[in-house]
């Protein structure tokens, strides 16, 4: 797969190329961090897509930007800024009642406003911290370069924590996401679950932001899950598939940006878009083929 997307600088000897890729320690760390982020983001993103909270997920990732800019302005590590702002924003979103139907969506207006205001705050902090304007790019669009061993460890620990919480609440959350009314009638604390989920999402997004930049978290959060859910309707297969696709996006993106001289943000999003397009076409083709073979609607299964 790597070879078909290859640029002229690459040889056809895959083993040699991969060896070359890992020659530098920063690249090894980039792959380690990217792998952790891809798994966590795709796993949580699968629920984000199921619960139709993609806009909220995007907002949380955007809110990391003023957090980081503010932290740098105050002289604190950007990491604390990311976590503080993402979790705070998750709680704010959780407090707003979820709208049903599409006729009027208070939620999206609130989220849009929070998002723009947060970005404006980030811009204010960046302006106040004079000489920092050039750093805006790496905060917004990320940099896979210069990731330290310590950062990889932090990402791993926090990511594992977020995944652990997700595994604990996974089954009831799935139930609540698919049918909130029935779930709450069965005694599942739907509201509490949704708050916990948003906080987990905030944590995951905060750590991912530190690698991919605030604006491109979405490519690893939503696209793998959306593509997987277009290919299969079975939860477990879709969940694992989303993680797999997330890894493919990250690894290909990193590899391509190493060999071709364009930013990793461009390659990651391009691979993600290609995968989504492929999944969309595949799912339409499958549906068309099924419809042609069996006129009556049937459940797709083994």
């Amino acid at each position: 797969m790597l070879a078909t997307d290859a640029t002229p600088q690459l040889t056809w000897d895959l083993a040699r190329d991969v060896h070359q890729l890992f020659e530098f320690h920063f690249m090894v760390n980039a792959f380690r961090a990217g792998t952790v982020v891809a798994v966590v983001a795709a796993a949580i993103g699968w629920f984000v897509v199921l619960r139709q909270q993609t806009f909220a997920g995007h907002t949380l990732s955007v809110v990391g930007f003023p957090g980081a800019a503010g932290a740098i302005w105050l002289g604190v590590s950007a990491t604390y800024g990311y976590f503080a702002f993402c979790i705070a924003a998750a709680l704010v979103i959780a407090l707003v009642p979820r709208g049903r139907g599409r006729a009027f969506s208070e939620e999206s207006a609130v989220i849009g406003t929070i998002q723009a205001f947060a970005l404006a705050c980030g811009f204010l902090f960046a302006s106040l911290y004079s000489g920092f304007l050039n750093g805006i790019d790496s905060l917004l669009f990320g940099s896979f370069l210069g990731i330290t061993d310590g950062q990889v460890l932090t990402l791993l620990v926090v990511g594992a924590g977020a995944l652990a919480v997700l595994i604990v609440i996974g089954r009831p959350l799935l139930f609540a996401s698919v049918d909130a009314d029935v779930a709450s009638a069965r005694g599942i604390p739907v509201r509490v679950l949704s708050v916990v989920f948003l906080v987990v999402l905030g944590v995951a997004v905060a750590e991912a932001s530190q690698i991919t930049g605030s604006l491109l978290v979405f490519a690893l959060l939503v696209v793998p899950a959306a593509a997987a859910q277009r290919i299969t309707s079975r939860p477990v297969v879709g969940f694992v598939g989303a993680i797999g696709l997330g890894l493919v996006i990250t690894w290909l993106g990193l590899g391509l940006s190493y060999y071709a001289d364009y930013p990793v943000g461009f390659w990651t999003t391009t691979v993600a878009f290609a995968i989504f397009l492929g999944a969309e076409i595949a799912s339409r083709a499958t549906r068309a083929a099924l419809a042609a073979r069996r006129p009556s609607p049937t459940v797709v299964g083994p």
């Binding site: 669009f141 979405f218 490519a219 461009f266 990651t268 999003t269 993600a272």
Partner: peptide
């Protein structure tokens, strides 16, 4: 929403390319 999100993420990536 998901289609919009996917498209805009890619377009944002293109923006990063143009920026570079």
């Amino acid at each position: 929403d998901v289609v919009i999100g996917t498209v805009f993420t890619w377009i944002l990536g293109l923006g990063v390319l143009f920026l570079s």
